[in-house]
């Protein structure tokens, strides 16, 4: 067990290091921010001068080693656009994304899991069909389309909810729904499958034979057992939500790290992008390691050799 954990953690570190390197190389291949920083009437010499001052005229491997050296001292570098430490910028935006992801997760779990339970326990009924259709619909609407629809209906036409920004709690409702829709489908499917698996097991049949009602069985035993795979899904969904936030945050002008990522890529603010990608991949890797460990703890038969 300890061996396995150590092995997984080493793999995780390798993955994060790889992410760092790949993103660094791709970003530098895309050019540097100097042209975007200078005023439009700058001369070629001035541009070259500023590029030199900012250090972008050095060979890429020198910049890379310089960056890694900074990282070893926990220095994530300065944003060339804002002249503020990149870490501070990301840290100031992170709470908004966490807030949004939490809202989306609430929507996804709050609707997804009950739907999954109903679909699993009422198989063949009309309700199951309707719910199944809703689940597939949630999975098929592009996030930006649902975002536009929500803004148009509840923001512009009915004026019930603010159309953008993060100035009040109500502003969270629409982006959370738009972002949560996709995950909602995942949760509904996964909990349905998990519960159906459990329902097929001997102890359920035995329970039913002893005269327990289906509802009692489900609530006393099945849900607890079925929750384990669902929890691991929840962990993995957090990574997906962070990624989905990129478009949703742009449409709703939600000031989280997704919007920041797009802006920073477009303004070639390398070090800010690095911090964001590092953060997201860290969360992703961490949650998948945890998910694996949960599996192993719960079901010792699983021995992952990857």
């Amino acid at each position: 067990m300890l061996n396995y954990t150590v092995q997984r953690l080493i793999q995780a570190l390798v993955a994060i290091f790889g992410v760092l390197t790949i993103v660094f190389v791709i970003m530098h291949l895309s050019g540097d921010p100097t042209l975007l920083l200078v005023p439009q009437d700058a001369s070629a010499e001035m541009i070259a001068e500023l590029r030199h001052q900012l250090g972008f005229d050095r060979p890429i491997w020198v910049q890379y080693i310089d960056y890694l050296h900074g990282l070893t001292q926990l220095d994530f570098g300065m944003s060339v656009v804002q002249r503020v430490p990149a870490l501070d910028i990301v840290a100031s935006r992170l709470p908004y994304t966490i807030q949004l992801a939490a809202g989306a997760l609430m929507v996804a779990i709050g609707i997804g899991i009950p739907s999954g339970i109903i679909m699993a326990t009422m198989r063949g009924s009309a309700i199951e069909r309707i719910l199944a259709a809703i689940v597939v619909t949630g999975q098929s609407v592009p996030t930006f389309l649902s975002a536009i629809l929500l803004i148009f209906i509840f923001g512009v036409t009915l004026r019930w909810l603010p159309t953008s920004g993060a100035s009040e709690l109500r502003a969270m409702i629409m982006p959370s729904i738009a972002l949560g829709a996709l995950s909602m489908s995942t949760f509904a499917r996964m909990s349905r499958i998990a519960i159906i698996d459990e329902l097929g097991k001997d102890y359920v049949r035995a329970g039913l034979a002893r005269g327990l009602s289906l509802g009692q069985t489900v609530f006393r035993h099945v849900l607890r057992n079925a929750s384990i795979p669902v929890i691991t899904i929840a962990a993995l969904e957090i990574g997906n939500l962070l990624a989905g936030a990129v478009i949703i945050e742009t449409v709703f002008a939600w000031p989280g790290i997704g919007q920041l990522a797009i802006q920073s890529i477009q303004s070639r603010d390398f070090l800010v992008v690095q911090v964001i990608v590092l953060l997201i991949s860290f969360v992703y890797v961490l949650t998948s390691v945890l998910a694996d460990l949960v599996y192993v703890v719960v079901d010792p038969r699983i021995r992952l050799v990857r």
């Binding site: 790949i22 993103v23 962070l242 990624a243 990129v246 797009i262 990608v277 997201i280």
Partner: peptide, 14 residues
């Protein structure tokens, strides 16, 4: 592992 831990949409934009 590396590719999976970069969000696809960010990687695509990059």
């Amino acid at each position: 592992d590396i590719m999976m831990s970069i969000p696809a949409i960010l990687l695509a934009v990059l």
